[in-house]
């Protein structure tokens, strides 16, 4: 009797314990991403390091992708899943353009991403996504996702390796959490910060994350999407950016008469 009990316990151990040598189809490639929505612009950023454990695989791997003239997607987590997810999204966007002769609106892309992610609910894309851009009403928007498609529209979001470092910082600086206006001063209104302030916050976020997290560094790519007709003189021109930063306007993917997308780049520490 006792023997029998022992055997079944041993058996239970065998069947319930994870099989140590089973192929693990996932990996964490580090890095971090972040997006902040403004009143008439949206900023989507990511570092360019791709790592595996303590090894840096490459110092330049893209994590932020221009999808349309008004949408930019940042992916973080398992790089292979991220790349293939973006590929699938772009494929769906192209079929949409074939059918409708226009680019998909941001909120529709947001829902479509939800659907694609949930479609693999039981073998998920191990990817944390942040979608940023301009809505049809001209407002800046940020949508954030979990790997199986839960999503919401927010004013800002950080994800990836340094999320736990960056999100509290953004809560404080963007949502004014734990800040009190001086007596008699105007109350804080989230989502109204000027572009230059937002850019400075993004850069500070990434230089800080680079200092404190080994998986963050090498390079920074910041995509800035601007509402149609918005002046660009707070981003483009002599002395508008801090030293060591460069900006270029990206070619339009569609007709090019609407929103504008800029890419701001900067190096990060490589250690």
């Amino acid at each position: 009797m006792a023997m029998h009990a022992e055997r079944s316990a041993a058996l239970h151990e065998l069947t319930s314990a994870p099989i140590q040598h089973a192929f693990n189809p996932y990996e964490d490639n580090g890095g971090t991403i972040l997006a902040i929505a403004g009143k008439d612009f949206s900023v989507i950023a990511g570092d360019t390091r791709q790592s595996q454990g303590y090894s840096i695989q490459t110092r330049y791997a893209r994590k932020v992708w221009q999808l349309t003239d008004r949408a930019v997607l940042a992916t973080n987590g398992f790089a292979a899943d991220g790349n293939n997810f973006v590929k699938k999204v772009k494929q769906r966007l192209e079929w949409y353009e074939h059918a409708h002769h226009k680019q998909m609106p941001l909120k529709s892309i947001a829902r479509m991403i939800q659907t694609i992610l949930y479609g693999k609910r039981f073998f998920p894309y191990y990817v944390y996504n942040i979608l940023g851009g301009i809505e049809e009403d001209g407002t800046g928007a940020v949508y954030s996702y979990d790997p199986v498609g839960t999503y919401e529209r927010e004013s800002c979001r950080a994800a990836g390796a340094a999320q736990s470092i960056l999100q509290p910082f953004l809560d404080n600086q963007i949502y004014f959490k734990n800040q009190t206006p001086e007596p008699g001063a105007e109350p804080f209104i989230p989502g109204n910060l000027p572009l230059s302030t937002v850019l400075a916050l993004v850069v500070d976020s990434f230089t800080s994350a680079t200092e404190r997290h080994i998986e963050v560094g090498d390079g920074l790519e910041v995509y800035v999407v601007m509402k149609k007709g918005r002046p660009t003189d707070d981003l483009v021109g002599e002395g508008k950016l801090a030293p060591g930063m460069a900006v270029e306007e990206l070619d339009a993917l569609g007709e090019g008469d609407g929103e504008k997308t800029f890419l701001v780049t900067r190096s990060l520490k490589r250690d």
Partner: peptide, 12 residues
Amino acid sequence: GYVDLLGTTYSS
């Protein structure tokens, strides 16, 4: 370029 059994890719 590099590619491995996970489908992970990168260039350097």
